[in-house]
Amino acid sequence: MDILTALLTLPYAPVRGLTSVVKTLHRQAEEQLYDPANVRRELEGLDAALAAGDLSAEDHALAQQQVLDRLIAPGGAPREGESGQPGLALGPAAGRPRRRAGR
């Protein structure tokens, strides 16, 4: 029966092969995205851009928080209590959303 199944599903072999390749690429991309060494390099790059004047302090803080969030909550889903809306941050004491400065 295995030979018959193999012969009947032979036309789907390229699809199965492509699916396997896509899964492997996805796994490797996630490993690189959440690798602490890569995150550290990104943070160092942000610090260098701030020192060179390419980034404002506000943009630096926002980009730094986004990079650190990848380490804290892999998968990109907002953590509990986050609004998921850009430009909003939780207030430290009140727990209410507040707008970033300059908006």
Rank of each mutant, 00 (worst) to 15 (best):
D35C: 05
A57S: 12
S83Q: 01
E31I: 12
L7C: 01
G75P: 09
G95E: 07
S56P: 06
P11H: 04
A13T: 04
E31W: 05
G75A: 08
A89K: 04
Q28D: 15
H60R: 11
M1K: 10
P97I: 03
R98Y: 13
R103T: 00
E80T: 05
A94Y: 05
L18A: 13
P14H: 03
A63F: 13
R99E: 14
E58H: 03
P36L: 12
L55S: 09
P86R: 02
R99S: 06
A61C: 03
E42V: 08
L46V: 09
D2K: 02
A48V: 01
A6Q: 02
A89V: 15
G95K: 04
A94H: 11
L71Y: 04
G91F: 01
S56N: 07
G95A: 07
L68E: 14
Q64H: 09
G95F: 01
A94T: 15
L46G: 09
D59Y: 08
E80A: 13
L4H: 08
L46K: 06
I72F: 13
A52H: 11
Q32L: 13
L90D: 14
S83V: 07
D2G: 02
R40E: 14
L8R: 11
R99H: 04
T5D: 02
A48P: 04
E58K: 09
E30K: 12
L7T: 04
R99M: 14
I3G: 02
A13W: 00
G45T: 15
Q32E: 15
E80N: 06
R100W: 00
D47P: 09
T19C: 09
P97E: 07
G95D: 06
V21P: 05
P92G: 01
P97S: 01
P86Q: 04
D47T: 14
R27V: 15
H26F: 05
E44K: 15
T19R: 13
A89R: 12
V21T: 12
L4E: 15
I72R: 15
A94R: 14
G102W: 07
S83L: 08
E58T: 04
L25D: 13
E80C: 03
G102D: 08
D47E: 15
R40A: 15
T19M: 05
A93D: 11
Q64R: 15
R16Q: 10
P97H: 07
T9Y: 03
A101R: 13
A51R: 15
L33K: 09
E42M: 12
S83D: 12
R16W: 14
A63C: 13
T5N: 04
P92D: 06
T5V: 07
E42I: 10
V15M: 09
Q65V: 08
A13E: 00
L71V: 07
